[in-house]
Amino acid sequence: MKKKMSLLEVNQVSKYFGVLKALDSVNISVQENTFHGLIGPNGSGKSTLLKAIAGDHYPDEGNIKFNGNDITKDSPEVRAQNGLNLKFQITAIFPELSVYDNILLSLQSPESFWKLVLSKSRTSYHDRIMDTLVRFKLVDRASSLAGELSHGLQQWLEIAMAVIRKPKLLLLDEPTGGMSPEERRTTGELLLPIKKECTLIIVEHDLEWIKDICDNLTVLDQGKVLDDGTVKHIEASQRVKEVYTSRV
């Protein structure tokens, strides 16, 4: 069987905040077109790791390779241009823009200054934007201000903004945070078809939810990788049971 290529490699990454070691020699490897979950108790370093991958802050030690290239010191915009996209833990949309314009803003980012000034692409993007709005159940709110949407819809909008760019790697920081069980289930349904298009790393608290959609899981505890492997492997792991399940 042909082995899938590793899209992301995090090698010996450490991050300090003052005296606190938020990440301690973390290693993870994420293969193409898989869903990879990051789980762990509060303060275990999940979001810190995700932010280090996205470029929100830089690791103090170690390196991060994306698509074979070292991106450890690249700025967030360079990483985004190379196909890496982050959905923030706290919803980060543009509240005073319409839902449609939020998606357009995300989609048009590779355009040059002049093309943007001359507004050459907005007509050609229309169908793609509408398709995405339909897919994420936002089409009847297309002209509403993004800030007027419910929390769940804002989360979907942010995922839609990331997905429409066809990223190679999508990083979702607690995509179901603050959602109702029904919204959580729908979010899972919305995410599953993405597997064909891109690789996904999800940070989640809800172990049951993440088990259903992820292929592999990495369990973090106090900034260290506690265990790593398939969902079945993690479910059977005695170390995870001892440390993780007793605290979550």
């Binding site: 996209n85 543009f94 823009l97 980012s109």
Partner: peptide, 15 residues
């Protein structure tokens, strides 16, 4: 308009 509302988010979109 995006810059005015959320400059950081815009950088993560590749701008």
């Amino acid at each position: 308009a995006g810059t005015r509302q959320n400059e950081k988010r815009l950088a993560f979109l590749g701008y």
